[in-house]
Amino acid sequence: MNIFRLTGDLSHLLAILILLWKIWKTRSCSGISGRSQILFATVYTARYLDLFTNFVSVYNSVMKIIFIAAAFATLYLIYVKFKATYDRNHDTFRIEFLLAPCALLALILNHEFTILEVLWTFSIYLESVAILPQLFLVSKTGEAETITSHYLFALGSYRALYLLNWIYRYYFEGFFDLIAIVAGIVQTVLYCDFFYLYITRVIKGRALKLPA
């Protein structure tokens, strides 16, 4: 464990908690893409199946349980509890165009052709594009609530911190996983546009409005 990975995980945890808090407090999931949340729940389910087979550490297991539980709790809030506030008309990104290619690529490009490894690879590829429906929703509505932009900033930062973690691990442990690194770069690059808007607008107290 290193500082980059720890702050990355905490940033990830913060993002998930901010999202739950926003929906619960405002009793509304407006501006939130349910489709992205479906993808995230899929990512965690596919990736954390080893939760019961190989124990890494208490921290690792606890975080996995929290991520899976929070993902499904968010889905419940969006599609059941506060369904009336779900922005169905704008949340239209075709996630099958993300799921199928990621599944295909995971079958072709992986470290080992075993169930757990292919599912892990699928979750890595899917996570790199899982935010697209959310970014698409923000671009369609042309704006995002400030709390939602904090959620996106924390979520985008987590994988950027993981990139630093991989650089650290490469130099100090000789460890690297090309699949995770390439997908992590793609994932972080997708946030760049949002990071720019967040830094130039939200930090200065102005609302996150996309230039029309």
Partner: peptide, 10 residues
């Protein structure tokens, strides 16, 4: 090349 890395990352 098979990388038998233990998955210790989240």
């Amino acid at each position: 090349k098979k990388q038998t890395i233990i998955k210790d990352e989240l």
